[in-house]
Computed example of a mutant assay.
Amino acid sequence: MPYASVLTGYGKPEALAWSPVAMPEPGPGQIRIRVHAAGVGPTDLKIRRGDLRQVFPLPPSAVLGFEAAGTVDALGPAVTGVATGDEVAAMLPALGGYGEYALASSWTAKPANVGWADAAALPASAEAAVGVLRQLGLTAGETLLILGGGGSVGLIATQLALSQGATVIGATGPRDEELLRELGAIPVRYGPDLLARVRDSADVGKVDAVLDAGGRGGLGDAVALAGGPARVITLADEHAADFGVVLSAPTPDRAPDALDLTMPLLASGELRLRTQRLLPMSDAAHAHSLLESGQVHEKLVLTAG
Rank of each mutant, 00 (worst) to 15 (best):
M1Q: 13
S5Y: 00
G11P: 11
P13V: 12
E14K: 07
E14F: 05
E14I: 00
A15I: 02
L16M: 14
P28G: 10
V35T: 08
L45T: 05
R49N: 09
P59C: 04
S61R: 15
L75K: 01
D86G: 09
L92D: 01
A94C: 11
G96F: 01
S105Q: 10
W107G: 00
K110W: 07
N113F: 01
D118C: 08
A120M: 11
S125C: 10
A126V: 06
E127S: 10
V132K: 00
A140P: 07
E142S: 03
L147A: 03
G150L: 04
A161Q: 08
A161Y: 06
Q164N: 11
G173V: 07
D176M: 06
L179I: 06
L180P: 04
V188S: 02
P192W: 08
A196W: 15
R199V: 12
D208A: 09
V210Q: 12
R216C: 12
L225H: 06
A230Q: 15
V232T: 11
I233Q: 08
L235E: 12
D237E: 10
A240W: 03
V246H: 11
P250C: 06
M263R: 06
P264F: 14
L265G: 00
L266W: 01
R274H: 07
T275V: 07
T275I: 11
L279K: 00
L279D: 01
L290W: 07
L291A: 13
E292W: 12
S293D: 12
L300W: 00
L300G: 00
